[in-house]
Amino acid sequence: MKTWIAFWGILAKDVRSYYLKPPNISWGLLFPLVWTTMFFVRSGLGIDSLPDLLPGLVALSILFGTTSVLSVTVTFEKKGRSFERLLLAPISLQLLMLAKTSGAILFGTVNAFVPVAVAAFLTDLSAVNWFVLIPAATLIAVSSTFLGLFIAVSVKEVFEAQTFSNFFRFPMIFLCGLFFPVASLPPLLRPLSYMLPLTYGADILRGSISGRNTMPLGLDFVVLAGFCAVLFLVTLGNINRKWIT
C-alpha cells in the first residue's frame, strides 16, 4: 500500500510538472501533425488515403509523445539532484522506474488517439479493429518509453539526452515502415528495420486500421513484448549500476 502511494505520488507529480505543460503538449502533438500534413500535401494524395497514412501518424505521435519528455526530465532531475529524493525513498528501483515511465506511457497512449480522433471526422473508420489498435498503441508506448529511459540512463547532460533521442527517433521514421514499406528500403538497411521495435508496432497498427500488415499480428505482438521486456531488464541493470554509484 505504502509503495503504491509513492508510485502515485511520483506519477501525479510528473504528469502535473511535465506532461501537462504546453511545450510538451505542443511538441508531442504538433510535430506528428505537421509532419503528416507535409507528407499529405507533397504526395498529392486525397482524403481517402488517410487510412493508409494513419498508422504512421499514430506511431509517430506515440514515439514523440513518449520520448520527448522522459529522457530530458530524468537527466534534468539527475543534474538538479532532485532525483536523489527518489533514490532515497524506501521503494525498489523497479517501482521507481515504473513510476517514472508511467507518465510517459500514459501520455504516449493518449497522444496516439489524437490523430485517430481527427481522422474520425474526415474519413470512415468503421473498419478499424479497436481490440488490436488499443493494446498495440499501449505496447508501442511502453517500448518507446523504455527506449527513452534507456537513453536517459546512458547520458549525463540534458542536451545529450535531446541529441541522443533524436539520433534514434528520426531514423526510425524512415526505417520502421511508418510511411514507406520496409520492403521499399535498400536491402542493406532492412535488417536494421527489423532490429527496431517500432517496425513491429507500426505493422500491428497497419493491420488494425487497414488490414494491411506484412507479418502475422501474433508474431508482431510477441516480438514487441519481447523488446519491452529486454529493454526493461537492461535499463534496470544500467540504473542499478549507474545511479547507485
Binding site: K2, I5, A6, W8, G9, I10, K13, R85, A89
Partner: peptide
Amino acid sequence: FCASLYGM
C-alpha cells in the same frame, strides 16, 4: 510530495 514517497 516527499511525504508521499514514504507512503503517507
